[in-house]
Simulated scan of single mutants.
Amino acid sequence: MPHEELPFWLVNVPRGQWPAECPDFLRDVGEKDRRLIGTPDSDYKRLSWQEVQEIIRLNRVDLFHRVPSDLRKYRQYTHKLIKEYGSILNFIVRERLHWPDLKQKGAPFEYPEDIKILYNDWPYGVDDKIIHLVIWTKFILEEDPVTGDLTIKARKEIDDFVNKTFRSRVKPENVIWFKNWASLKSVHAVEHFHVMLYNPDIAFLEEITNGDVPMAAKVA
């Protein structure tokens, strides 16, 4: 049967594992996710480092997508987490950040205790040489109430941190950061921004993430 005739929830699933009906975790997904999940992995093109840089330069982070089969797994996993923990937020704070509370110790980026660097558990469909990290913070990164974009002060604070933490150890041209718009955040109430590194040293990643392993790898 040609894949175009398949319902979206059967695409990328081996025929022997086809469910009789649409799984619960896919029933309420939006049209955008239905379209992506219904795309064969073989038709999906991963973004190059140059394309990633251009997307961030244009502030079009809505153009980042997961590989179709990864998006399906992400939806399945988060559906399970919400049942077990009540929300993705509860899982992140308890199991990933291990923070007893979100009370900050000092000013933004002043204390390491207010920051945690982890892998993005379910990274976007980008070149395999691109490593996607999430920098979680107990402090707020100020946004302009009119534009919703970061203030000049907050942008400088982040850039200074990225320079000190990443660009001092990785070629500057191989480091880029961005912050999702509020409407695109999958986890609210815990502040965070994203750093992408091109072909970084594995030992550096081990050090900077304290040996973290993304959930996608653990589930796989």
Rank of each mutant, 00 (worst) to 15 (best):
Y77G: 00
R94V: 00
E95K: 15
T147F: 13
Y111K: 09
P108S: 12
I92E: 12
E113W: 03
Y74F: 15
P108M: 12
Q76K: 13
K138I: 03
K83W: 01
R94Q: 15
H98A: 10
I82C: 08
G86C: 11
I55S: 09
K153H: 14
D127L: 12
F91K: 08
D128C: 02
Y111Q: 05
E157L: 13
W122M: 05
I92H: 04
A154C: 06
Y124F: 15
N90V: 15
W122C: 05
E84P: 06
D127K: 04
V61G: 04
E95R: 15
K129G: 02
V61S: 10
L118F: 07
I130Y: 01
K129T: 13
P145K: 06
N59P: 02
E51V: 02
D159N: 14
P108Q: 09
G125K: 10
I82W: 01
Y85S: 06
E95Y: 13
H65S: 11
F161M: 04
Q50Y: 02
W122E: 02
L133S: 12
P100Q: 03
I152C: 09
K83H: 14
Y77K: 12
G125Q: 10
F64H: 01
E110K: 13
D149Y: 12
K164L: 08
W122R: 04
R60L: 08
T137D: 11
Q104L: 14
V52K: 03
L63G: 01
W122N: 03
Y111S: 10
L81S: 05
K73H: 09
V162N: 07
E143H: 13
R60P: 00
L63I: 00
G148K: 10
Y77N: 09
R94G: 06
N59I: 04
Y77W: 14
T78L: 08
E142T: 11
T151H: 00
R57Q: 11
G125E: 09
F109R: 01
Q53Y: 00
S69C: 11
V134Y: 07
N120C: 05
I88C: 09
I135E: 06
K129E: 15
K138Q: 12
H79W: 14
D159W: 05
A154S: 15
D121Q: 13
L89Q: 12
F91D: 07
G125W: 01
D160F: 09
R96A: 11
L89T: 14
N59C: 10
A107K: 11
K153W: 15
E84A: 14
R155Q: 14
H98P: 01
A154N: 03
E51N: 01
I135T: 12
R94C: 06
P123K: 05
Y124C: 04
K103N: 10
W99D: 04
T147D: 07
E84V: 14
